[in-house]
Write a protein that binds this DNA or RNA. Structure first.
Length: 262
DNA sequence: ATGGCTTTCTACGAAAGA
């Protein structure tokens, strides 16, 4: 049995005590982090060493940045999403652990989206990034390697994934092209692990810092695990741990976890 | 809400986030 967590921590340095306390209590075998907001060589390695984790880090100054923590050895690390050599944003890191491939994903936000006739530069980047992710998934499927892609997708898949969907109708997280691109990933044969286990509305992974969103449970479900067919066959459970969002100095995201059978 | 927080930076306000 393997427990894998994904958590957009909104700065690994500002959140180090929250993160280490949660890891020490929850003890996931693998943790995928996003928005570490630090360059690779400044990543705080020592507290994770102490907890028994191996590390793979793809950092960037100030923004973005992703990391994989794993109690088992990490092999064959791939830094960055293929398909655009000019893309310098640190949003994708993939490796082999325990015989499967695992990626930590920080999909672009995309706001402001621009108009329907002319998407903004940021929204175009998001949609192109999703196309590159689809291409990567097609390669992994063709190679017949089991895989799990976890992270902050910045996609609200359906109206039941937001407390107030009207607030998101014209947002890059929910616009039709965004949901269409997310569905096209699923249509390749991937499974949204959370929805395979839990069909309830009102299951969120993000609450804005503003306007008492957490206290009012005004959230959205945007952090996801997508599993290849072979990994879906091994899926035992998937759940959201709301507790870290209520702690002092919390990230605006909370962790999502999957349990995979051996 | 064209932003009510939060984080970052050769900082002292602006950019980015969602």
């Amino acid at each position: 049995m393997t427990i894998i967590a994904s958590w957009n921590v909104n700065s690994v340095r500002a959140r180090i005590d929250n993160i280490t306390a949660w890891l020490d209590e929850t003890k996931p075998d693998i943790a995928l982090l996003q928005e570490i907001k630090v360059q690779t060589d400044s990543f705080p390695q020592e507290p994770f060493d102490t907890l028994g984790y191996n590390l793979a880090v793809l950092g960037q100054k100030s923004y973005n940045g992703v990391a994989i923590l794993s109690k088992a050895p990490i092999h064959d690390v791939m830094e960055g999403l293929p398909g655009d050599d000019s893309d310098e944003q640190a949003r994708y890191l993939e490796a082999e652990i325990n015989g499967f491939r695992v990626a930590t994903i920080y999909l672009p936000n995309g706001n402001p989206p621009g108009s329907a006739d002319e998407h903004s530069e940021k929204y175009s980047y998001k949609l192109n990034w999703m196309k590159r992710l689809r291409d990567r998934v097609e390669t992994l499927l063709a190679d017949d390697v089991p895989f799990i892609l976890g992270g902050d997708y910045n996609v609200i898949p359906a109206e039941e994934d937001a407390a107030d969907i009207k607030a998101w109708l014209n947002d890059a997280l929910y616009l039709p092209p965004t949901r269409q691109a997310f569905r096209s990933l699923l249509n390749l044969g991937l499974t949204d692990a959370f929805r395979a286990i839990n069909q309830a509305a009102g299951q969120y992974t993000f609450w804005d810092y503003q306007a008492g969103a957490w206290q009012r449970d005004n959230g959205i479900r945007i952090d996801h695990f997508l599993l290849s067919p072979a990994m879906t066959d091994r899926l035992q459970n998937c759940w959201i741990d709301r507790k870290p969002r209520g702690e002092p100095k919390a990230s605006d995201h909370t962790p999502i976890l999957v349990e995979i059978a051996d």
